[in-house]
């Protein structure tokens, strides 16, 4: 009687160990399976992602507010410090911008007159929503952010995300109240762009560094550091003319310096240009191409 529990234990112990090992191996295989499934990019994987990020987004939203306040305070302190100098620079800049404003007004009027003359079909006006950045992908491999705006606020897949004055990324996943924006610096980001002065077309390719590369530039392209780069509109995802950055020289080829402080992204404007583009889901009743 006395050694019965012992014998049961002796028997149960190896079995439990086996079950544990089997579970472990099964889960390891499941992880590999998930990698392959994710590679295949199925709807299921995206659904899973959206559901999880959506459920965490209210928490992230709440958590990101205190850090925003603290950062604002730090920023405020810095501002007070350099106030006098900044004031002077801003006055000079303001004077310069007023001149530009006059130029812009004149051009706008001229443009309107010329458009009326030629019967130009205007592009669809952009509608946009502003969204707080509530999550950053901390890590060495991915450059994307979560924003606190989802389908219920009007976020759509393929919208351009603009920070301040420059293109920051593209909406890739949309949940009900959160969305993921793939930044233009991410390895998987490819944006058709054009160099403003020379009209040379290229592809802006992210490589996880802060300055994306200019790929597929013609060998005889007349590009010099300092040139402005804007979206070209080819591919139909983005409209032409969204500012992207300025060209900077690099060891091999050119890179683009976006006017964005990647560490301080706080708000993003998600702009819908009503283009549809290649990301539009195509059902049986869908005629296909662009409107």
């Amino acid at each position: 009687m006395k050694d019965r529990p012992g014998s049961v234990l002796r028997l149960a112990q190896p079995i439990r160990l086996w079950v544990q090992r089997f579970t472990f191996l099964l889960l390891l295989a499941a992880a590999v399976g998930l990698m392959l499934l994710g590679k295949a990019d199925t709807v299921l994987v995206e659904r899973l992602r959206v559901v999880v990020t959506d459920s965490v987004s209210p928490l992230l939203d709440a958590l990101s507010r205190p850090t925003a306040v603290v950062n604002d305070l730090i920023e405020h302190g810095r501002n007070v410090y350099g106030l006098a100098l900044e004031n002077r620079t801003l006055r000079e800049e303001n004077a310069r911008l007023l001149q530009w404003q006059a130029v812009a007004r004149r051009l706008e009027a001229e443009n309107a007159a010329l458009r009326a003359l030629t019967g130009y079909v205007p592009e669809a006006a952009a509608t946009d929503i502003s969204a707080r950045v509530i999550g950053a992908s901390g890590g060495a491999y991915v450059r994307s952010v979560l924003v606190a705006a989802g389908a219920r606020h009007g976020a759509r897949k393929g919208q351009a995300a603009v920070a301040g004055t420059g293109l920051a990324g593209r909406v890739t996943e949309v949940g009900d109240r959160s969305a993921r924006v793939l930044l233009i610096t991410d390895l998987n980001s490819r944006i058709p762009v054009v160099v403003e002065g020379s009209r040379d077309q290229a592809v802006l390719a992210g490589d996880n560094s802060d300055r994306p590369r200019l790929d597929y530039l013609r060998s005889n392209a007349r590009v010099t550091p300092g040139d402005r780069v804007v979206t070209s509109g080819i591919g139909g995802i983005f409209p032409p003319g969204i500012p992207v950055g300025v060209v900077v020289g690099a060891e091999n080829g050119f890179r683009v310096q976006p006017p964005i402080d990647w560490e301080r992204l706080e708000f993003l404007r998600l702009m819908d240009f009503g283009l549809g583009g290649p990301l539009r889901p195509q059902g049986p009743g869908d005629p296909g191409g662009r409107p």
Binding site: L27, L37, L48, V52, V56, V142, S144, R180
Partner: peptide, 19 residues
């Protein structure tokens, strides 16, 4: 999922560490 990276990599690494 939260990091936006490829699915399964984190699970694989953490399981390997666990093992």
């Amino acid at each position: 999922i939260l990091g936006g990276g490829p699915l399964g990599v984190g699970a694989f690494v953490l399981l390997a560490v666990h093992g």
